[in-house]
Measured scan of single mutants.
Amino acid sequence: GPIITTQVTIPKDLAGSIIGKGGQRIKQIRHESGASIKIDEPLEGSEDRIITITGTQDQIQNAQYLLQNSVKQY
C-alpha cells in the first residue's frame, strides 16, 4: 500500500515507557511494526510529545497497537 505518515500525541510522562531503557522498547516497536517512528523532543512548556509514525496502513496500525501496549504496562 501507499506510505503514509500519522502523528500521535502522548503526555511526556509516558514517553519513558515507550522509549524504554536505552531506547530498547522503541527499537523493538520499530522492528516489530516495520514502521519508522520518530519521537520529537517536548516543546518548551508543553506537557506533550509528538510521535511521528511513517509506513503503510498496516505498519502504522501495528505500531499504534504496540505503542498503546507499552503505555498500558507502565
Score class of each variant (00 low, 15 high):
residue 1 G to Q: 01
residue 1 G to E: 02
residue 1 G to F: 02
residue 1 G to T: 10
residue 2 P to T: 15
residue 2 P to F: 08
residue 2 P to H: 07
residue 2 P to N: 11
residue 3 I to C: 05
residue 3 I to H: 06
residue 3 I to L: 08
residue 3 I to R: 10
residue 3 I to Y: 04
residue 5 T to Y: 02
residue 6 T to K: 15
residue 7 Q to D: 02
residue 7 Q to F: 02
residue 8 V to E: 14
residue 9 T to E: 12
residue 9 T to H: 02
residue 10 I to L: 15
residue 10 I to P: 01
residue 10 I to M: 09
residue 11 P to I: 04
residue 11 P to V: 03
residue 11 P to W: 01
residue 11 P to C: 08
residue 12 K to P: 15
residue 12 K to Y: 03
residue 12 K to E: 04
residue 13 D to N: 14
residue 13 D to H: 14
residue 14 L to S: 14
residue 14 L to V: 12
residue 14 L to D: 15
residue 15 A to N: 03
residue 15 A to G: 04
residue 15 A to L: 09
residue 15 A to D: 06
residue 16 G to C: 08
residue 16 G to M: 14
residue 16 G to P: 14
residue 17 S to Q: 14
residue 17 S to N: 09
residue 18 I to D: 03
residue 18 I to E: 06
residue 19 I to D: 04
residue 19 I to K: 05
residue 19 I to W: 13
residue 20 G to M: 15
residue 20 G to R: 07
residue 21 K to M: 10
residue 21 K to R: 13
residue 22 G to V: 05
residue 22 G to S: 14
residue 23 G to L: 12
residue 23 G to V: 06
residue 23 G to F: 07
residue 24 Q to S: 11
residue 25 R to Y: 04
residue 25 R to D: 06
residue 25 R to A: 14
residue 26 I to K: 04
residue 26 I to A: 06
residue 26 I to C: 13
residue 27 K to G: 11
residue 27 K to L: 14
residue 28 Q to A: 13
residue 28 Q to G: 12
residue 28 Q to T: 11
residue 28 Q to N: 15
residue 29 I to S: 03
residue 29 I to Y: 04
residue 29 I to V: 06
residue 30 R to Q: 11
residue 30 R to E: 14
residue 30 R to T: 10
residue 30 R to G: 11
residue 31 H to A: 09
residue 31 H to W: 08
residue 31 H to V: 05
residue 33 S to R: 01
residue 34 G to D: 02
residue 34 G to V: 01
residue 34 G to K: 06
residue 34 G to E: 05
residue 35 A to F: 00
residue 36 S to Q: 10
residue 36 S to C: 06
residue 36 S to W: 09
residue 37 I to D: 00
residue 37 I to V: 07
residue 38 K to M: 06
residue 39 I to T: 10
residue 40 D to V: 06
residue 40 D to Y: 03
residue 40 D to T: 03
residue 41 E to K: 10
residue 41 E to I: 08
residue 41 E to A: 08
residue 41 E to W: 03
residue 42 P to I: 13
residue 43 L to A: 11
residue 43 L to Q: 08
residue 43 L to H: 07
residue 43 L to W: 04
residue 45 G to N: 04
residue 45 G to E: 14
residue 45 G to W: 07
residue 45 G to S: 06
residue 45 G to R: 07
residue 45 G to K: 13
residue 46 S to K: 09
residue 46 S to P: 03
residue 46 S to Y: 12
residue 47 E to I: 12
residue 47 E to G: 10
residue 47 E to D: 05
residue 47 E to T: 07
residue 48 D to H: 09
residue 48 D to A: 05
residue 48 D to V: 11
residue 48 D to T: 10
residue 49 R to G: 07
residue 49 R to F: 03
residue 49 R to C: 12
residue 50 I to E: 15
residue 50 I to Y: 10
residue 51 I to N: 00
residue 51 I to Y: 11
residue 51 I to K: 00
residue 51 I to A: 13
residue 52 T to E: 14
residue 52 T to M: 08
residue 53 I to N: 01
residue 54 T to P: 00
residue 54 T to S: 13
residue 54 T to Y: 08
residue 55 G to T: 00
residue 56 T to M: 06
residue 56 T to F: 06
residue 56 T to E: 15
residue 57 Q to I: 02
residue 57 Q to H: 13
residue 57 Q to K: 11
residue 58 D to T: 06
residue 58 D to V: 09
residue 58 D to E: 11
residue 58 D to F: 07
residue 59 Q to H: 05
residue 59 Q to F: 00
residue 60 I to N: 14
residue 60 I to M: 03
residue 60 I to R: 02
residue 61 Q to G: 09
residue 61 Q to E: 13
residue 61 Q to R: 11
residue 62 N to C: 13
residue 65 Y to G: 15
residue 66 L to F: 07
residue 66 L to D: 12
residue 67 L to N: 01
residue 67 L to D: 00
residue 67 L to M: 07
residue 67 L to H: 00
residue 67 L to P: 00
residue 68 Q to A: 08
residue 68 Q to W: 02
residue 68 Q to E: 13
residue 70 S to D: 13
residue 70 S to F: 07
residue 70 S to G: 13
residue 71 V to H: 03
residue 72 K to H: 10
residue 73 Q to D: 13
residue 74 Y to S: 15
